[in-house]
């Protein structure tokens, strides 16, 4: 499986009307056209009639251009921004429960400290930790934690916004050409 932030994935921000079933419409489109989702995030925007998806797609499953065009055929999709690495800020949250017996506990704590993570829960032999960062950082953190034995892990998927002052190509309904 591709991790967010790896070369073969693309991040798109999809602005949709906040209507019943819109998540199902997007998910269904990916399923029936055979596009792979690496991660998907959705929440309302400041305008309560709109929601924004951040979707990381596996670019090897289909050309990104075709994915964007097919998404646009959904009536509720209003705007799609393609978010390339230099133009965006990306963040992801990871929660992990790791094995931390007496002999390795201090090493795990040190690792969490280095990554500016937090300890959320402690039990005999296990720790639940959180960390927030770029997808690359989160990948590194998870890889290092796995040396100690990950019991359970949950990643939020990527959230992204354009960098201030960096225009990103946005495709709006009703125009064939992207506008910046």
């Amino acid at each position: 499986m591709n991790r967010p932030g790896t070369m073969s994935s693309h991040t798109i921000a999809v602005l949709v009307e906040n209507k019943a079933g819109v998540l199902a419409r997007v998910a269904d489109l990916f399923a029936r056209r055979g596009y792979n989702i690496v991660s998907l995030n959705v929440a309302p925007t400041t305008d309560p009639t709109m929601s924004r998806f951040t979707i990381v797609v596996d670019a090897e499953s289909a050309p990104i251009e075709q994915i964007v065009k097919q998404l646009f055929k959904l009536i509720n999709v209003v705007e799609i921004a393609q978010l390339g690495p230099p133009d965006v800020v990306e963040r992801e949250l990871i929660l992990a429960t790791v094995e931390a017996p007496q002999e390795s506990r201090s090493q795990v704590l040190e690792l969490v400290d280095i990554f500016k993570g937090r300890i959320l829960a402690v039990s005999t032999g296990k720790l639940t930790v959180s960390m927030e960062g770029t997808p690359d950082k989160v990948n590194d953190f998870e890889a290092l934690l796995s040396d100690y034995g990950i019991v359970e892990v949950q990643r939020s998927g990527v959230m992204a916004l354009p960098k201030v002052g960096r225009p990103v190509p946005r495709l709006r309904a009703g125009s064939a050409e992207p506008t910046v």
Partner: peptide, 12 residues
């Protein structure tokens, strides 16, 4: 009120 649906009839 269909902000996401404005089919483009006229080619560039």
């Amino acid at each position: 009120n269909l902000p996401g649906y404005q089919p483009d009839m006229t080619p560039s």
